[in-house]
Amino acid sequence: MEISVGHTPDSDDAFMFYGMFTGKVPSPDFKVNHVIEDIEKLNQKATDPQLDVTAVSVHACAYIPGYTILRSGGSFGIGYGPIVTARGQMTIDEIKKCKIAIPGKMTSAFLLLQLMIGKFDYVEMNFSDIPEAVKSGKVDAGLVIHETQLSYAQEGNVKILDVGEWWDKTTNGLPVPLGINVMKTDLGMDTIHKFDKYLQASIEYGLDNLEDAIEYAMQYSRGKPRDLIEKFVKMYVNKVTVNMGDAGEESIRRVFEMAKEKDLVPDFELSIAIK
């Protein structure tokens, strides 16, 4: 079966798909054509289902009823996650009043920050442009995702809020639900389950062949040094990535319960693949 698979130009996604896309983990069931897009573009594509399988933000699940969440391939922070940066420290009241650059309205980071501080003034931009926009004063603060969570100090900014830490404390240690992979529901649960296992095998291959998988992921390093990319990959390719388990599933359900209470997402039915 030939299927289209979308993932982001990010090192953690590349690491997860290393075994699959290089043919080192073959499948008798699937021939994969992969499409690489920024996460917010993949979120938007998924609202009008174009790809058979795609990476999306957890937040996007509220707007993509045609997809089922896979149990493997999720990006979950274990006590860490998105942060907010600025040129200098601010009080929480000052943060609530300032204009914050966000990496997209459908990103999980945006939803989590709204849950943390309430609705705020924002401007959307590509996540990689946010650090410079903060440093130059184009915006007052920036909601930072991906490897720039680790490099903000070198970029001349300071951390003023830790969204991942807030979620960890608020939920008594549930993993921070950020990105997941989804598959078209109409392909059938048997096919979805088979692909889920295929992706899981690819992730496990990367973890078992760490050096080679990191080297493959470096093509999406965006000029960051290898040690930073390796640290980032190890943060977001973890045991919950291999299989979300009960904790990962509960974190996804919890974020939407909280969001519905605050009218931040529409009412919808969540579809998660069988165990």
Rank of each mutant, 00 (worst) to 15 (best):
D29E: 15
E147Q: 02
K135G: 00
I229N: 07
D162L: 11
E147P: 11
F110A: 14
F76W: 09
F30A: 01
V53Y: 12
G6E: 12
V242A: 10
D48A: 01
F127L: 00
D186Q: 13
V139R: 04
G6Q: 11
G173A: 09
K224T: 04
T68R: 07
N43E: 07
S128A: 03
I214F: 12
Q44A: 10
Q114T: 11
M16C: 14
E2D: 15
G142N: 07
V144S: 03
R254K: 14
L143E: 00
K41D: 13
D267T: 06
V53L: 07
M90N: 08
D29T: 09
L207V: 02
V240R: 08
D267F: 03
T68F: 01
L70E: 08
P103W: 08
D190Q: 15
D196T: 11
G79N: 10
P177R: 05
N33Y: 13
L210P: 01
S27I: 03
T22H: 06
I130C: 13
E204P: 06
T8G: 13
A101N: 05
A60L: 12
D13Y: 11
G118E: 11
L199G: 02
T171Y: 11
W166C: 14
Y205K: 02
Y216A: 00
F76L: 07
I92V: 14
P9H: 00
P103F: 15
S151W: 01
P131H: 02
G23H: 05
A141N: 07
K234N: 12
I100F: 05
F21W: 04
C98E: 12
I214W: 13
V139S: 06
I3W: 10
D93H: 00
G88M: 09
M90F: 15
Y236V: 02
V84D: 11
T68D: 03
A213G: 02
F17I: 12
Q44E: 10
K96L: 03
N43Q: 06
S72N: 06
T85D: 07
G6N: 07
W166M: 13
L115V: 12
Q219A: 14
V58E: 10
T22I: 02
Q114C: 14
T22S: 15
L70F: 09
A273I: 03
F30I: 02
R254D: 04
E215C: 07
T148H: 15
V56S: 04
E261N: 09
I180L: 14
H7C: 08
Y67N: 00
G206R: 10
I64H: 11
V240A: 08
